[in-house]
Amino acid sequence: MKNFFFEISILFITAVFVCLIVLPMFALFTTTSFEELIYQFRSPVILSAIVISLETSLIVVFLSLCLGIPVAYLLAMKDFRGKEIIDTLVDLPVSMPPLVAGLALLILLGGNSKFGNLLSSHGVDLIFSKKGIIIAQLFVSIPFLIKSTKDAFASINKNVINASLTLGASKFHTFKTVLLPLAKNGIYTGMIMTWSRALGEFGATSMVAGCIPFRTETMTVAIYQNAMTGEPAASIAVALLLLVFSFTLLLIFKLRIKVQAG
């Protein structure tokens, strides 16, 4: 009898969890009509938000590769003083609330700081610009690429790398022909996670870049703006599209893991 109640409770709790996730999704998908969606996606300000989001997040993925792979290499392959510090720095943006990250960036890059002044005196204005969005997204999402790539590098048999060296390859050539191909899956996984994080980023972005339609309004910002100003239909349209993106990424992610395992 006790067993029976235990099992029932587990099922009941699971059902609560499923409702928690599914009901909001259901609400989102059923409150609007197809025609309404089409109408919204024709609106220039919505289209611009979609373009800005895709543009910035893809640039972020590219930049995170350029910055993240060398850092991952260093952390995985080298032993040096202060390695723990860099390791912690990689974890920091993930555990930090995005709004706090945004505030920190705003203070650093804003007109009131020396650094911000120096930049704007050279004609570089990062605040309230697309560049600001990119920096904010990069800040919060690059750790995913670094961690995933680092783990991939670290799991490569050291002797395979040594074999390449003794066969006459330089460290750089070994990096190109052995490390990168063998870390490929880890790098792809990191890219997908970074992209999905950048696409969904709201807190840091809105702090640094504000919500200027046609200039700095990303999809997430558009959702917030429209919902707050009594335009739920526009919000819903963007939200649905964002969901489609993240579902697709999640699916690719799961499939990759399956392929790797099988």
Binding site: N157, N159, N162, A163, L165, T166, G168, S170
Partner: peptide, 14 residues
């Protein structure tokens, strides 16, 4: 290592 002209057979084949 790449300049030493050595052939190395590792314990785990590598």
């Amino acid at each position: 290592p790449d300049k030493r002209r050595i052939g190395y057979v590792f314990q785990d084949h590598a």
